[in-house]
Computed example of a mutant assay.
Amino acid sequence: MSTSTLPVDQPRPVTGVTPPSLLTLVRVELRKSYDTRAGRWLLVTIGLAALAVVAISLFVDDAPKTFADYFSFTQLPVGILLPVLGILLVTSEWSQRTAMTTFTLVPRRSRVLTAKVLAAAVLGVLGVLAAAVASGLATVLTPVFTDQPMDWSLSAAQAGQVLLVQVVYVLSGVAFGMLLLSSPLAIVTYFVLPTVFTIVVNLVSALDWVRDWLDLGTVTQPMFEGELDGQGWAQLATSAALWIVLPMVIGWLRIERSEIA
């Protein structure tokens, strides 16, 4: 038998095929985020929610009406909905049974997972940009509907920290998606577990230090105004390790080692 001949029952090596670049994989993952009906409507809802928030702020007399204030207000709906998009970016592979196809085309699962993380970060940036557009529209309309002038002031600290916090939030959704691999379970757990955790650490005074160091909602609150200080950065890193790094590492290893059905 020639050394170049393989038995019939053995897989033949594929030659001359260049694996897709990481940039290509990120583009594919971004397309997946709006290819599904749920993802497409979620993106539309994020934009509409940002517009709704600034519209309400525009017509409420007591609400501040500067670009920085509008920008801060819009982060609430964006921060709530973006993590769901991050969850779906991972779990849709299993709910739609495309994981086997994906990992067959790209056998190195770590490259696919890395692309999902990068795509989620891009979505976080796009969410902030959408909020900025809605805030800019409200700022332009402020002198039209109120007696206040346009105020475009926005500190670099606020812009940078808002951008970072939304990336953190969407990556926390990705982490829960990797850990649980089920859209309903991951979404419910993502909202229920941190909420229960926040309630407990706020009710028990002895757990104040836990709230200050491990409650992601508490730690990130100053970031919407660009006011995170030196200790705040350490607290952010600690809470991110609990709510993002830990579940993402466990989920990553699970996906790498498990059989894909």
Rank of each mutant, 00 (worst) to 15 (best):
I187W: 00
A134K: 05
R31Q: 15
I187Q: 01
A119K: 01
V188C: 05
V54G: 01
V196L: 15
S110I: 04
A38N: 06
G177E: 00
V117F: 15
P7R: 11
A119L: 07
A240L: 12
V17P: 03
A186D: 01
S183D: 02
L228F: 12
S95E: 01
V170T: 11
T238V: 14
L137G: 15
D69Q: 05
V106D: 03
V133Q: 07
G177H: 00
A240F: 15
A175M: 04
I250W: 02
A38H: 09
M1S: 05
Y70W: 10
Q148W: 04
P13H: 05
D208M: 11
L51K: 05
L246D: 03
L180Q: 03
M1V: 04
S110Q: 09
M100C: 02
W213S: 13
G177D: 02
I250G: 00
T24L: 12
T198E: 05
G39C: 10
A241T: 12
L43Y: 04
T98I: 13
L6Q: 09
I260L: 13
L42P: 07
A240Y: 11
P20F: 12
R12D: 08
R108A: 12
M178S: 02
G16P: 01
T218M: 07
V122L: 15
I46F: 02
F103C: 05
T91H: 01
D61C: 02
V112A: 10
M100L: 15
V192D: 05
T15N: 06
P19R: 12
L181I: 05
A132Q: 08
